[in-house]
Amino acid sequence: ENVVSAPMPGKVLRVLVRVGDRVRVGQGLLVLEAMKMENEIPSPRDGVVKRILVKEGEIVDTGQPKIELG
């Protein structure tokens, strides 16, 4: 899985990584606000952040790609 998608609709509060960052499985990639709760979205695997496809403040839909890992 190279693309991390939104598990639920919500607002991107914070992006916790930058392009080029090495990430580990379970590491937080971003914080999504859904139903007035903050949810940290974890990396599904070890890898390197290739692209960030969302911006802080953006509203995302379920299944929308957010971060691409290499």
Rank of each mutant, 00 (worst) to 15 (best):
P9F: 10
R24S: 12
V54I: 10
N2T: 15
D21N: 05
K50G: 05
V19M: 06
P42W: 08
G26V: 04
P42T: 14
E58T: 08
P65G: 11
A6L: 06
M37D: 08
I41K: 00
L32W: 06
R24Q: 12
P42R: 14
D61S: 14
K50D: 05
G47P: 01
V25R: 14
N2G: 11
R45S: 11
K11S: 03
I52K: 01
V3Y: 14
V23N: 01
E38G: 05
I67H: 01
G57K: 03
G57M: 06
M37S: 11
V31F: 03
P9V: 07
V31G: 00
D46V: 07
G70S: 13
E40W: 12
K11P: 01
P9E: 06
R18D: 11
E40T: 15
V12W: 00
E40I: 15
A6Y: 06
P7H: 11
P42D: 05
V3W: 15
A34N: 12
R45W: 13
G28L: 14
S5E: 08
V19P: 08
D61V: 15
R45E: 05
V48F: 13
L53H: 08
R51F: 04
V17F: 00
G57D: 06
G63I: 05
V25S: 11
G26H: 06
G28Y: 07
L29E: 01
V17A: 01
A6S: 13
E33F: 13
K11E: 04
P44K: 04
D61I: 14
G70Q: 13
N39H: 15
E40D: 06
L16Y: 04
R14F: 03
E33M: 10
G70L: 13
V25L: 13
R18I: 10
I52H: 00
L30G: 01
V25M: 13
D46H: 08
N39S: 12
K11A: 03
V4Y: 02
E68N: 04
L16Q: 04
P7R: 11
V25A: 14
R24M: 11
A6D: 04
G26D: 05
D61F: 14
K36W: 12
V23L: 03
V15F: 06
E56L: 10
R22P: 11
P44I: 05
G47Q: 03
R18P: 04
V3P: 06
G28A: 14
T62I: 13
P42V: 14
P9Q: 09
V25C: 12
K55L: 10
P42C: 14
V15P: 03
P44R: 04
V17P: 01
N39W: 15
N2P: 07
K55A: 11
G28W: 07
P65W: 08
R24G: 09
N39M: 15
V15C: 09
L53R: 04
S5I: 13
G70F: 14
G47T: 03
K11L: 10
S5M: 12
M35S: 11
K11M: 09
T62K: 14
K66M: 15
L13R: 04
R14E: 10
K66W: 15
I59P: 06
Q64Y: 07
L69K: 01
P65Q: 07
L29D: 01
S43C: 10
V48N: 04
V3T: 11
R18Y: 04
M8Q: 08
G63D: 09
V15G: 02
P42H: 10
R14C: 11
A6V: 08
I59K: 09
R18E: 13
D21Y: 01
V17R: 00
R51Q: 09
L53S: 03
I41T: 03
V19C: 09
G57I: 05
I67P: 02
S5A: 11
R18G: 11
V23Y: 00
V4W: 02
S43V: 02
M8Y: 15
E33A: 08
S5R: 15
D21F: 08
L53T: 04
V12N: 03
E40V: 15
V49I: 12
G20Q: 04
V23T: 02
I41L: 08
P44T: 07
L13A: 05
D61W: 12
N39V: 15
M37C: 11
V15T: 03
Q64W: 08
N39K: 13
L16S: 04
G26L: 05
V12D: 01
P9I: 07
N39C: 15
V3R: 06
E38D: 08
V3C: 13
T62R: 14
V19I: 11
L53F: 14
I59H: 12
R51I: 08
E40R: 08
M8V: 09
K55M: 11
T62W: 10
K55W: 09
L53W: 11
E68W: 11
E68A: 09
I41V: 09
L32Y: 09
V25G: 08
P9N: 09
V12G: 01
T62L: 12
S5Y: 15
E58S: 09
A6K: 04
I41F: 06
R22D: 10
V25N: 09
L30D: 01
R24N: 10
G57Y: 04
M37R: 13
K11I: 11
G47L: 02
L30W: 02
E1N: 13
G26R: 04
D21L: 07
S5K: 13
E58C: 07
E40K: 08
M35Y: 12
I52P: 01
G63S: 07
V17W: 00
E58G: 05
D21W: 04
V54W: 00
V23K: 02
R18A: 12
V60M: 04
D21A: 07
T62F: 12
L30S: 02
G57Q: 05
I67E: 03
K55F: 11
Q27D: 10
M8I: 09
N2D: 12
V19W: 04
K66T: 15
I41M: 05
L32Q: 00
V25W: 08
V15E: 06
P65L: 10
V25K: 15
R51S: 10
V15W: 04
E33T: 05
K11N: 03
D21Q: 13
E68F: 11
R18M: 10
